[in-house]
Design a protein around this nucleic acid. Structure first.
Lengths: 213, 213
DNA sequence: CCTGCCGTGGCACTGAGTGTCAATTGCTTC
DNA sequence: GAAGCAATTGACACTCAGTGCCACGGCAGG
């Protein structure tokens, strides 16, 4: 990206993020803040990009400099979650049972949702109910699975090309994630996702911890 | 759809499918036959719908009467597979272990792919490598999961609103499906999907057959 | 003051997808 | 065989997402 090259020397480093980066984040937030209420109220495909940019007060062209597609304005926040999940798995103790380590990894995005209350419920519902958004979400999820599988293979010293276990375990853990997410949004955020997650992993754990590889 | 109402009385019923339906299938096949080589060779997003219809000898407008989107010309065949999977699960003996019944259900689309040889390899590779197609594929897959979960709940007498098991089992079985499909296409169709499927379900079975619900 | 850099807006263009209508085809009925 | 009827098709126009290009304006440093 080569965001900043020369500026970095004299100023900041104090805040870990560049001024330009923060300005960029500001505009991106402005866009999403303008978009989400519109999309939630009228429905995804009944809102045009022109309406969004009009509400945000920027030009149409600028929108596509911040988001690669109309879908991304809703879904992009999932991107960094992927790294968060993998990081959590990497941070778990090496000898911890896979079912426990994976449960903590998957808990990262669930906690992020639960922490944002009704706001997150509305966004997730929008995603799950809009085919185009749901498809993008599943695409990201597939990348999460690959990340988790790679991390698992590394932690267990397995060859991911030979052994089916890593991607099966990752896929199974994310199946649990799906179930929890759906229940949670199905209850309008009322049901506590913590016990839900434990119940889901109780069902799935025998496959994750089983000795048969 | 109300395809035919009056005609059905006097003619056919012999072939179980209407003449109009077969004609429709003929045009649809013509389109896919024209599209797949083009897409496989040049890459999905470097082929326009205009090129496809030119190769097939129909108008652009007709294309969209047969396929709701450009993606569907590649992915549509997955739609009927969904019913096939569920039907297979419904046809399995009632007391068969879930891991076995689900393995047979998931074997339906795998066998369909394996039966079509190199042709299927190319299509599946195209789908897995093209983000837009992959996303659509995952969307279908999610519907498979819902179908399987509903069927499982029925067969086991579980309440799908209370019990997490049905959708977890369905999701886990499809995680196995994913792994097998990826290995199979990764080996250019050389690896036998049969043993692969058995290995995958051997890993996953403890969760599918476990008593902890 | 000038100069190079960057973010932005405006504009034109491609390509997917849809509504509408007129022409055509095929099949029934008189 | 001719008129009528339903369904399919092709052509045209239109909306909207997404992209390339260029010109304008602020803002740094010399």
């Amino acid at each position: 990206m080569s965001v900043t090259r020369d500026m970095t020397y004299h100023r900041l480093v104090t805040s870990e993020t560049t001024l330009a980066q923060r300005k960029r984040q500001l505009v991106a937030d402005e866009l999403t803040e303008a978009a989400l209420p519109l999309l939630a109220e009228k429905g995804y495909d009944r809102v045009t990009v022109d309406e969004i940019v009009a509400a945000a007060g920027v030009s149409r062209r600028t929108f596509f400099r911040y988001f690669a597609s109309k879908e991304d304005v809703v879904v992009q926040f999932l991107a960094d979650m992927g790294t968060g999940i993998r990081a959590e798995l990497a941070a778990r103790p090496a000898r911890e049972r896979p079912s426990v380590a994976l449960r903590h990894a998957v808990w990262v995005p669930i906690a992020a949702c639960a922490g944002h209350g009704d706001r997150a419920v509305r966004v997730v519902r929008l995603i799950l109910d809009t085919p185009a958004l749901f498809a993008r979400f599943l695409e990201r999820r597939a990348r999460w699975r690959d990340d988790l599988a790679a991390e698992l293979a590394g932690r267990l010293g397995l060859d991911p090309d030979t052994d089916l276990y890593p991607e099966l375990a990752a896929g199974t853990a994310l199946a649990a994630f799906d179930a929890v997410l759906r229940r949670w949004v199905g209850s309008d955020g009322a049901e506590d996702p913590g016990p839900l997650t434990e119940r889901a992993f109780a069902v799935v754990a025998p496959a994750l911890d089983g000795r048969r590889r």
